[in-house]
Simulated assay, not measured.
Amino acid sequence: MPAETPPAGNPARKRGRPTEAERVQRRDDILDAAVRLLLADGFGGVTFDDIGAEARVTKRTIYAHFATRTEVFLAAVERLRERTLALPGDHVTLLDLATAIVTGLHSDEAVGLHRLMISSARDFPELSAAFYADGPERYIAALRERLDPASASAAEALFTLLLGEPHRRRLLGLAPAPTDAQASAHAATTLRLLGLD
């Protein structure tokens, strides 16, 4: 089997069993390549051969991480959620979490994945259900956990307003991703509107 060519900017991969860090990096390289291709060509237009060529790995390497394109897409959604919700420090406030959600879900990657899901929903209904369960439902659950028990029922309304019209404008390509200051202001306004500040 020919040796894999490392992605541009990555050091050459050594022979033998990869370390855990190398496995994580390789998985990220595959997901990065897959997201680029999926956003450019749509869910039905991307094969594992395409992803392998873009990530500069063999198809066998992809299969070591993912069995299907559905798994690749959902792994990208999961990775985005984990990165969005991975807030540093022990004293994360509701505003910190709300700001992270605005920043993460209004990002180019999140908006692209959301557009892709909307365009693919009719042809891939199971994927839509999995996307919702692993995306919006998990963000709402994270908000619910952070809210005072008396306000926990507001989690869905809070999530909805954190996206709101700015997110619709993002989906339609009418606005750029918010700056950190804009994301924080949007989150603060939303919390204030719901009496959660």
Rank of each mutant, 00 (worst) to 15 (best):
T5N: 11
R26Y: 00
Y63T: 10
A110Q: 09
L147E: 06
R23L: 15
E165R: 12
L196V: 06
E145P: 03
R169H: 14
A155L: 12
E54S: 12
L94E: 08
A121C: 10
V24A: 14
A121P: 09
E156L: 11
A75H: 00
D180Q: 12
E54A: 15
S184F: 03
S128K: 12
I62R: 02
L39R: 15
L193W: 11
R26K: 14
L193V: 13
Q182I: 06
L162V: 08
D180M: 02
G52L: 07
R17L: 14
R144D: 08
A177M: 09
R69P: 06
D50P: 08
G164I: 04
A12F: 03
E20L: 14
L105Q: 14
F159G: 01
K59D: 11
T61F: 06
L85Y: 07
R26T: 15
G9I: 05
T5G: 06
G195W: 01
D29K: 05
K14E: 12
A183V: 01
P6Q: 10
D197P: 04
R122I: 12
L147T: 02
S153C: 03
G42Q: 00
T189N: 14
T99H: 05
P6N: 11
A64G: 15
R81I: 00
T99N: 07
R60E: 15
A110P: 04
R83M: 08
R169K: 13
G9Q: 04
V72G: 02
L147S: 07
A152Y: 03
R170S: 08
A121V: 14
P176W: 06
R13G: 07
A175I: 09
F48S: 08
T58Y: 07
P178K: 04
S128Y: 12
R81G: 00
D41C: 07
S120Q: 09
D123Y: 11
L171V: 03
L116M: 04
G52N: 00
A141E: 13
P166S: 03
A40S: 15
P149L: 03
L196I: 11
D96Q: 09
G89D: 05
I101K: 01
A55E: 02
V111E: 06
G112V: 07
P125Y: 08
A40Y: 01
A181G: 07
M117Q: 13
G16P: 02
E145F: 10
Q25R: 15
A175F: 07
R69V: 09
T84M: 07
R83W: 04
E156K: 13
S107L: 04
T84W: 08
A129E: 14
H65P: 01
L163S: 04
D32Q: 15
L143T: 05
G52V: 03
A33C: 03
A129N: 06
H91L: 12
L161W: 10
T160D: 13
L85P: 05
A76R: 02
I140T: 11
P2S: 14
A185Q: 08
E78I: 10
G52Q: 02
A121E: 14
H167T: 02
F73S: 01
A141S: 12
A76E: 00
V92H: 02
R69L: 12
S119E: 13
A130L: 15
D123W: 10
H91R: 13
L37C: 08
P88L: 11
A150M: 06
F73M: 12
L162P: 02
R115W: 06
L174H: 11
R122G: 08
A21I: 09
H106T: 08
I118A: 13
T19L: 11
